[in-house]
């Protein structure tokens, strides 16, 4: 009995790393994705192609590989930059890799959402004398948000589970912790990790359903 509570508290503790990684990734990748989306829609073609190539590379390679490259790359290339030592350095490197990866995915969702708004909405704003930014913030933004909530929800839920990839650069997240017990011959903690993810995803499902409902007062 005592051992079970110890294991559960250690699993919970390590799940905090997954949660922290999740929150930090969203906090930075959601806005960064918008910047990338504007870059990939730029009328200045060198910038557009640079951004699109970058997105292609990030979406075209495994996140696991990106984690390794970002963590070990600077040292292997003999760069003067290096990650801070110890656990905090590994966590920061993982967070950076996640932010870049997810920002690229979000940027494509944003781009699709922005491009799906009928030209007539922009034109209606234009003939009413609105500036480009007024049209974006007052006319199209909420319509875009309404349209992208389902795909963003999908992406966010994938992120919850992807956070466990951080173990590849020795971040002690929940599956790595459970794996230590598996190595000792104790299998149930590994199965128990699934419950953490299920509960997290359940909360997110409710949140996204609520958001969708919130914006159901109008149709696009």
């Amino acid at each position: 009995m005592n051992e079970i509570t110890i294991i559960i508290s250690r699993l919970s503790e390590s799940f905090m790393l997954n949660c922290k990684l999740f929150v930090l990734t969203l906090l930075f990748s959601l806005p960064l994705g918008l910047v990338i989306a504007f870059g990939s829609m730029s009328r200045f073609s060198p910038l557009r192609w640079l951004v699109r190539t970058f997105v292609w590379i990030i979406r075209g390679t495994p996140l696991m590989l990106q984690l390794i490259v970002i963590f070990f790359g600077p040292g292997l290339l003999g760069m003067s930059f290096s990650w801070p030592g110890g656990a905090s350095g590994r966590f920061v490197a993982a967070t950076v890799a996640f932010i870049i990866n997810y920002a690229c995915y979000f940027s494509e969702i944003y781009r699709a959402g922005i491009e799906s708004i009928p030209a007539g909405q922009y034109e209606a704003g234009q003939v009413l004398g609105m500036t480009k930014s007024q049209i974006f913030f007052n006319v199209t933004l909420l319509q875009v948000i309404k349209r992208i909530i389902p795909p963003v929800g999908n992406e966010v839920m994938t992120l919850v589970k992807d956070t466990s990839l951080a173990r590849i650069i020795a971040n002690k997240e929940i599956i790595m912790m459970a794996g230590e017990y598996t190595n000792k011959g104790l299998i149930w903690p590994l199965f128990a990790t699934g419950i953490y993810f299920l509960i997290f995803i359940g909360v997110l499902t409710i949140l996204f359903d609520w958001l969708e409902k919130k914006l159901s007062y109008f149709r696009v």
Binding site: P118, G120, Q121, E123, A124, Q126, V127, G129, T131, V139, L142, Q143, K146, F218, R219, V220
Partner: peptide, 21 residues
Amino acid sequence: VRKKRLHFGLVFQNFNLFPQY
């Protein structure tokens, strides 16, 4: 252009109302 276009108003074939307002 922004100022000068206000001499004109335009009603579109497809209305183009803003759905969220």
